[in-house]
Computed example of a mutant assay.
Amino acid sequence: MGTVKLYKYLDYNGGLMMLSYSNLQFTNATQLNDPFDCHPSLIDFSNVPKEACGSCPPEIIEESRRAPFRRNREQVWICSLSKIHDSILMWSYYSKHKGTCIGLDMEKAKKYLSRMHGRIMISCVEVEVQYKDMVEKPDYFRDTKDFFHYQLSTKAKAWEHEQEVRLFILAPSPTYRILLPHQNDKNGPIDWKEVRAFPKIGGECFESVYLGINMHTDEKSKIISAARKLNPDMKIYQMGIDTNAFRLNTELIK
């Protein structure tokens, strides 16, 4: 079996920080750029069977089953990766092709990601995002889906170009957060959901780095320097334009 490689698209600053600190960024699900992402309304809790009610009204049962999925969305932190390094749209999102894309050897990363970073690490085995044309709303009481993974890995078809693969942490330990919850800044208390988690992985996990077509020369030098310091064997590529097709190509920097 070949090496499993996944890619992290970042702007220049994000790429430099990731290479400098040898870590992965996890973001709370409520802070992602898709308002449907991980939303509990992806699942239908309304068809409560009589046998599930007992002496309780169906509305109480419905709410009791929905509540954990609301908490999931607030307590899960996600690291979004991609199967591809040459998506024109993804490069455009990150500083108009001025950013970076970092290739990770996931087989090597698993030994770090399987450690306990929160209450539980859901996935050191990668979970692929499933893209749907419509909100299917599986019936919580009658379907046999893994509803937890369905909630956290189902997105609209409009995002399919990202070819996303996700890693999850539930309630990450403060050790891995860049700021602690309730710590004050000049504007007052920080919302704990806005805090990012940064578990560290080994330099050997960093397989490659790709430089955006429009990245400034001085920024390229800093990225290359950080990459070579982190892992001397890391491959460094310059992204370029394929003049015969609407696609990007790569050139290895010796």
Results as ranks from 00 to 15, higher is better:
residue 194 E to F: 03
residue 64 S to V: 09
residue 13 N to L: 13
residue 84 I to D: 10
residue 240 G to W: 06
residue 238 Q to L: 12
residue 214 N to P: 11
residue 98 K to P: 05
residue 244 N to W: 09
residue 42 L to I: 08
residue 110 K to E: 14
residue 245 A to K: 10
residue 111 K to I: 07
residue 210 Y to E: 06
residue 37 D to A: 12
residue 101 C to S: 00
residue 121 M to D: 13
residue 78 I to T: 10
residue 158 A to C: 11
residue 174 P to F: 09
residue 73 R to H: 15
residue 231 N to P: 13
residue 193 K to L: 15
residue 209 V to G: 07
residue 164 E to T: 05
residue 60 I to D: 12
residue 177 R to D: 04
residue 51 E to A: 14
residue 142 R to D: 00
residue 233 D to S: 15
residue 58 P to W: 05
residue 154 T to Q: 02
residue 133 D to Q: 11
residue 161 H to T: 05
residue 69 F to C: 00
residue 161 H to G: 12
residue 206 F to R: 08
residue 123 S to T: 02
residue 35 P to C: 03
residue 104 L to K: 02
residue 210 Y to K: 01
residue 172 P to Q: 12
residue 8 K to H: 02
residue 83 K to N: 12
residue 58 P to M: 04
residue 162 E to D: 02
residue 42 L to D: 01
residue 89 L to W: 05
residue 107 E to Y: 09
residue 112 Y to E: 05
residue 212 G to E: 00
residue 143 D to G: 03
residue 13 N to F: 10
residue 153 S to W: 04
residue 143 D to M: 08
residue 43 I to L: 11
residue 94 Y to G: 03
residue 35 P to M: 04
residue 80 S to P: 00
residue 220 K to S: 00
residue 79 C to F: 13
residue 219 E to N: 07
residue 171 A to F: 15
residue 33 N to P: 08
residue 100 T to W: 00
residue 76 V to S: 06
residue 29 A to C: 02
residue 49 P to K: 09
residue 202 G to M: 05
residue 141 F to W: 03
residue 44 D to V: 00
residue 202 G to D: 02
residue 98 K to H: 09
residue 228 R to H: 07
residue 12 Y to A: 04
residue 170 L to W: 04
residue 41 S to E: 08
residue 45 F to G: 13
residue 22 S to C: 15
residue 223 I to H: 00
residue 40 P to A: 11
residue 250 T to L: 03
residue 14 G to E: 08
residue 47 N to H: 15
residue 186 K to T: 07
residue 19 L to V: 12
residue 59 E to P: 04
residue 173 S to P: 08
residue 70 R to N: 13
residue 209 V to M: 13
residue 25 Q to M: 06
residue 93 Y to E: 08
residue 69 F to L: 03
residue 85 H to T: 00
residue 248 L to R: 00
residue 14 G to V: 12
residue 7 Y to N: 10
residue 24 L to A: 02
residue 11 D to S: 14
residue 182 H to V: 05
residue 125 V to G: 10
residue 23 N to A: 03
residue 228 R to D: 00
residue 12 Y to S: 11
residue 157 K to I: 15
residue 142 R to S: 07
residue 42 L to M: 08
residue 165 V to T: 15
residue 157 K to S: 13
residue 134 M to P: 11
residue 225 S to F: 12
residue 119 R to F: 06
residue 162 E to F: 06
residue 40 P to W: 06
residue 39 H to A: 09
residue 234 M to Y: 09
residue 104 L to V: 05
residue 57 P to M: 03
residue 170 L to K: 06
residue 30 T to Y: 13
residue 123 S to Y: 08
residue 182 H to Y: 03
residue 210 Y to W: 03
residue 41 S to T: 15
residue 17 M to F: 11
residue 44 D to S: 11
residue 205 C to Q: 10
residue 236 I to Q: 14
residue 118 G to N: 08
residue 191 D to W: 13
residue 111 K to C: 02
residue 9 Y to F: 10
residue 13 N to M: 14
residue 113 L to P: 01
residue 45 F to A: 07
residue 200 K to V: 04
residue 159 W to H: 06
residue 129 V to C: 08
residue 88 I to G: 07
residue 122 I to Y: 10
residue 91 W to L: 09
residue 211 L to K: 05
residue 93 Y to M: 03
residue 81 L to E: 01
residue 205 C to T: 07
residue 75 Q to W: 12
residue 29 A to H: 00
residue 144 T to W: 01
residue 80 S to G: 03
residue 98 K to T: 10
residue 196 R to Q: 07
residue 210 Y to P: 01
residue 154 T to D: 14
residue 175 T to Y: 11
residue 133 D to S: 01
residue 3 T to W: 13
residue 12 Y to C: 08
residue 11 D to M: 00
